[in-house]
Computed example of a mutant assay.
Amino acid sequence: MAAYWIAHVTVTDAERYGGYQALAPAAFARFGARFLARGGEAEVLEGPAHARHVVIEFPDLAAARACYDSAEYRAARAARAGAADVAVVIVAGL
Results as ranks from 00 to 15, higher is better:
66 A>F: 05
55 V>T: 12
59 P>S: 10
50 H>N: 08
30 R>E: 14
66 A>H: 08
86 V>H: 05
32 G>H: 07
52 R>K: 10
81 A>V: 03
24 A>F: 02
36 L>W: 13
39 G>D: 11
86 V>I: 15
37 A>N: 11
47 G>D: 06
54 V>N: 04
34 R>A: 11
75 A>D: 12
94 L>Q: 13
37 A>G: 04
77 R>Q: 14
40 G>K: 05
93 G>W: 11
80 R>N: 07
67 C>V: 06
54 V>G: 03
82 G>A: 03
29 A>K: 15
89 V>S: 12
49 A>C: 08
32 G>Q: 11
69 D>G: 03
70 S>P: 12
49 A>H: 15
94 L>F: 12
78 A>H: 01
86 V>P: 01
44 V>F: 04
72 E>F: 00
41 E>D: 15
85 D>Y: 02
29 A>P: 01
49 A>Q: 11
63 A>N: 10
30 R>S: 03
60 D>V: 07
71 A>R: 10
82 G>Q: 02
42 A>D: 10
62 A>I: 09
85 D>M: 03
94 L>C: 05
91 V>N: 05
71 A>S: 12
37 A>S: 14
60 D>N: 15
82 G>C: 00
63 A>D: 11
93 G>Y: 12
25 P>I: 06
39 G>A: 10
55 V>R: 06
49 A>V: 15
69 D>W: 04
38 R>M: 09
22 A>T: 11
49 A>I: 09
90 I>E: 12
83 A>Q: 02
80 R>M: 08
64 A>Y: 09
72 E>N: 00
78 A>E: 14
30 R>P: 00
52 R>C: 03
31 F>Q: 08
88 V>M: 11
86 V>M: 11
33 A>G: 05
61 L>D: 08
87 A>F: 04
80 R>V: 00
83 A>M: 09
45 L>V: 14
51 A>P: 04
42 A>Q: 14
43 E>M: 08
45 L>K: 11
89 V>E: 06
62 A>V: 12
73 Y>W: 06
79 A>Q: 02
45 L>C: 09
29 A>E: 15
86 V>D: 02
81 A>H: 12
65 R>H: 13
43 E>P: 02
82 G>V: 01
56 I>T: 15
53 H>S: 13
84 A>Q: 01
31 F>M: 09
54 V>Y: 05
72 E>W: 00
52 R>G: 05
71 A>G: 11
76 A>K: 01
46 E>H: 10
68 Y>P: 06
83 A>P: 03
90 I>M: 14
83 A>I: 06
53 H>I: 09
94 L>P: 15
77 R>C: 07
87 A>H: 10
41 E>W: 08
83 A>N: 09
62 A>R: 14
94 L>Y: 06
50 H>W: 10
52 R>P: 02
27 A>G: 14
70 S>G: 06
41 E>P: 07
88 V>H: 04
73 Y>K: 01
30 R>F: 02
57 E>V: 09
23 L>R: 05
52 R>H: 14
68 Y>C: 02
60 D>Q: 09
85 D>S: 11
62 A>S: 15
92 A>L: 03
25 P>W: 05
76 A>D: 01
24 A>S: 15
36 L>T: 04
52 R>V: 04
37 A>P: 02
83 A>L: 06
42 A>V: 15
38 R>P: 03
88 V>Q: 07
83 A>R: 09
59 P>Q: 10
44 V>Y: 05
90 I>C: 13
67 C>G: 04
93 G>S: 08
68 Y>K: 06
